[in-house]
């Protein structure tokens, strides 16, 4: 039988999907064991028990200086910034995208501008944000929002333009005003696509967040990683990276779940 026609069964598929993770863990353990055998004080590939011990300290023992549980404080700070930035970006994407896609005058006014804005490398304007907004929360939230909003605006605008003309004409024959078209027809019809676009922007959003935290922050997951880098504290960096990955993955699943719950009609490929 040809390889392209051989499909794994349910269990086989599960085993196959877990295999790369298992291999990675084994490779790490092997590398760690080898290095620690040579030099018990090696910091590069700490043994899992060391990592867990460090993590326990960060998660359950208040910091001596601030009295905070560092791990949770970092997580909350980062998630708050990420959520705020993405919420601002999504709202901007919805409003501007609908306007550009639906109203020809707004499209003529803004679509080239949005296209140009989407080309600005967001990290290049981080210094500007730091200068203008200061080193507080605003600059970090701002970078996440500015970095992800242009793509969302353009995506929503394109989706609105892709809506079948028949539906928009039909709504007008039912008495819809421009506002009605936006609020009751176009917005709900492109909402699932906005959530999809948001899922794809989760990766860039984390990138911008960590970059901003690395440069100017006093707490946050990205801040911690770059802080302990100086001490080669892989026992902190590794679990933090794993945790960020897990959070990003959970965010993606959460948005997918929301989309399925809110828009049961969308899966039918309307």
């Amino acid at each position: 039988m040809r390889l392209v026609n051989r499909r794994p069964g349910r269990e086989a598929a599960l085993v196959l999907s877990l295999l790369p993770f298992l291999l990675l863990v084994l490779a790490y353990l092997w590398g760690s064991a080898v290095r620690l055998a040579e030099n018990p004080a090696d910091k590069l590939l700490p043994w899992p028990s060391t990592i867990l011990e460090t993590l326990r300290g960060l998660a359950f023992e208040p910091d001596r200086r601030t009295g905070q549980l560092v791990f949770w404080a970092d997580t909350l700070a980062s998630l708050g910034r990420l959520g705020s930035g993405l919420a601002i970006a999504a709202a901007t994407g919805a409003v501007l995208g609908l306007a550009i896609g639906l109203i020809p005058i707004a499209g003529a006014l803004l679509s080239s501008f949005a296209a140009a804005a989407a080309m600005i490398p967001p990290l290049a304007i981080l210094p500007i944000l730091l200068i203008v907004l200061g080193t507080g929360e605003a600059s970090k939230i701002g970078l996440v929002a500015l970095g992800t909003a242009p793509v969302l605006v353009r995506d929503v605008a394109l989706r609105v333009r892709d809506l079948p003309e028949e539906l928009l004409v039909k709504a007008q024959t039912l008495g819809a005003s421009t506002w009605h078209l936006a609020a009751r027809i176009a917005a709900p019809l492109v909402a699932p696509r906005l959530l999809d676009a948001l899922r794809l922007q989760l990766g860039p959003a984390w990138l911008f967040l960590i970059a901003a935290e690395a440069i100017a922050a006093t707490e946050g997951l990205g801040y911690r990683i770059f802080l302990v880098r100086r001490y080669l504290a892989m026992d902190v960096i590794l679990p933090y990276v794993a945790w960020i990955t897990l959070l990003a993955f959970a965010g993606d699943r959460l948005l997918a779940w929301i989309a399925r719950r809110l828009f049961p009609w969308a899966k039918a490929g309307a």
Binding site: E166, L167, Q172, T173, L174, R184, A268
Partner: peptide, 30 residues
């Protein structure tokens, strides 16, 4: 287009995100 002239196309004739009842209600609501 306006409510004085109704239309039924061959395709894309109803709003996929609204139930049957909401599709029928839509014009009255708008």
């Amino acid at each position: 287009p306006g409510p004085d002239r109704g239309i039924v196309f061959q395709r894309y004739t109803v709003f996929p995100h609204l139930t049957v009842l909401d599709n029928a209600l839509l014009g009255l609501e708008l």
